[in-house]
Design a protein around this nucleic acid. Structure first.
Length: 421
RNA sequence: GGAGAGGUGGCCGAGUUGGCUUAAGGCGUGCGCCUGCUAAGCGUAUGUGGGGCUUAACACUUCACCGAGGGUUCGAAUCCCUCCUUCUCCGCCA
């Protein structure tokens, strides 16, 4: 969340942000709630101060065996007032909190203003589109021919969007996960975390999924738990509520988890095969850093994710997301889109974002600085990478005319040396 | 799932017949003094968040926070209720 003081001092800017991010937060209403809460807090504090003082006098009199009936009578009335205003105050605080949690993060000055993905800025292309001497097949055709996926039976087990990987398909998927984890750990210095796949409401609120996206997540109502839509949630919240030492920064975590997304409202869009699914696997990088250089770190994380695509020798492009495509919590996001020759389009495989102190304020993630005082860290995360579309790109890029697939060199050790599927 | 015992400041730990404790004492840490150096010793400071005052910061002042949320009371770390959680034992189970 944003700092209330910041919002009140930059109200017009924040209103622009809400508009450009296509959010709904009402800033004027929020500021009214803020003023109202401050007033109530002031009255409450003053009443409490009186009450505390007189209660001490009563205590003193009682100790001295003096009569305190008049004070007691007086305080009885005061107590009523305190109770009443306290109720108003907590009501007001709750409303303010709820409103504040729905205000999106501000974006930084390098984010292009725009309303949809068409306004995203293409930063650069890396590598070349592979030339084929034949018409490249789609991943669905290739998977079918080699029996790598069983979409129908996955659907039978659960429903559409829950793909089941079979035999070499399952092995290739697992190889990808292991390769990416090892790569980030050994080449980029990340520490692996293996986290729960369900989290509670507080954790979901910490990274900004709640309250806004409750309908986009799978929920265990019995225990009020949510299936994570990304490892970002448990990993970023790992140190929630703590004050870290400056020397503990930067924190660099990498974690593999499955991700669960209802994708409500996107039915029928890109649903073919693995393009858009309800459950998928992802290796996620998360960093907690000092505020001063978080944008350098963002570039570094983009490079970390790119390194995977480079190692797999896949063609891709880098996008700087415009305001309209930027998520609620992000200050700036770069997407990596990999080229899929069969589908003849670029597919998003990674999203790397700097949240500045938006998440750390929500989750209370702080470090003690040189000045001895706590400061909010900046949080960043990025996929490194999501597997389904990477899987698609591998199948489609490495396919041969006879329908077989060459295994990318870096994955061969993870498939017992297998060179061809 | 059942039974019992706990959850206090960075850490340890007192406080549970409600009121000179709006958290004692210790450790750790910062600063100062002392001292060939170090250690010891002495002194002093040391939580988080919000509000008021202030151009702002400092300072000052005030409120809240003793697992979380309610309640009783003039007054709650202390009493009552609900929940969470840790440990021990039992049961069930991969």
């Amino acid at each position: 969340m944003l700092d209330l003081k910041f919002i009140s001092e930059n109200a017009e800017f924040v209103k622009d942000v809400v508009k450009n991010k296509k959010e709904k937060a009402n800033i004027d209403e929020l500021l009214n709630l803020y003023e109202n809460k401050k007033k109530l807090q002031f009255s409450f504090d003053n009443l409490k101060a009186t009450q505390n003082k007189v209660s001490k006098e009563i205590a003193k009199k009682k100790r001295n065996k003096e009569n305190a009936d008049d004070l007691l009578a007086q305080m009885k009335l005061e107590a009523e007032k305190v109770k009443k205003i306290n109720a108003e105050l907590s009501e007001s605080s709750k409303k303010l909190e709820n409103a504040l949690l729905r205000v999106p993060n501000v974006y930084n000055k390098n984010v292009p203003i725009g309303s949809s993905e068409d306004d995203n800025e293409i930063v650069r292309y890396e590598g070349e589109k592979k030339e084929f001497s034949f018409k490249p097949k789609t991943h669905i055709e290739i998977a079918e021919k080699n029996h790598l996926l069983d979409i129908e039976r996955g659907t039978k087990l659960t429903g559409s969007g829950f793909p089941t990987y079979v035999n070499k398909g399952a092995m290739l998927e697992r190889a990808l996960i292991n390769f990416m984890l090892d790569f980030h750990i050994t080449k980029h210095g990340y520490t692996e975390l293996k986290v729960p796949f369900m989290v509670n409401r507080k954790t979901m609120t910490g990274t900004g999924q709640l309250p806004k996206l409750e309908n986009d997540m799978y929920r265990i109502t019995e225990d009020d738990l949510f299936l994570i839509p990304t490892a970002e949630v448990p990993v970023t919240n790992f140190y929630a509520g703590e004050i870290l030492n400056e020397k503990d920064l930067p924190v660099k975590f990498v974690a593999y988890t499955p991700c669960f997304r209802r994708e409500a409202g996107s039915y029928g869009k890109d649903t073919k095969g693995l393009q858009r699914v309800h459950q998928f696997n992802k290796v996620e990088m998360v960093r907690l850093v000092k505020p001063e250089n978080s944008y350098e770190i963002l570039d570094e994380m983009v490079a970390d994710a790119e390194d995977i695509l480079k190692a797999l020798k896949l063609h891709y492009r880098v996008l700087n997301l415009c305001t309209g495509d930027l998520s609620f919590a992000s200050a700036q996001t770069f997407d990596l889109e990999v080229w899929a020759p069969g589908a003849q389009k670029y597919l998003e495989v990674s999203s790397i974002s700097n949240f500045e102190d938006f998440q750390s304020r929500r989750a209370s993630l702080r470090f003690r600085g040189d000045d001895g005082k706590p400061h909010f860290v900046h949080t960043l995360n990025g996929s490194g990478l999501a597997t389904p579309r990477t899987f698609i790109a591998i199948l489609e890029t490495y396919q041969n005319e006879d329908g077989s697939i060459d295994v990318p060199k870096v994955l061969q050790p993870y498939l017992q040396g297998l060179k061809k599927i």
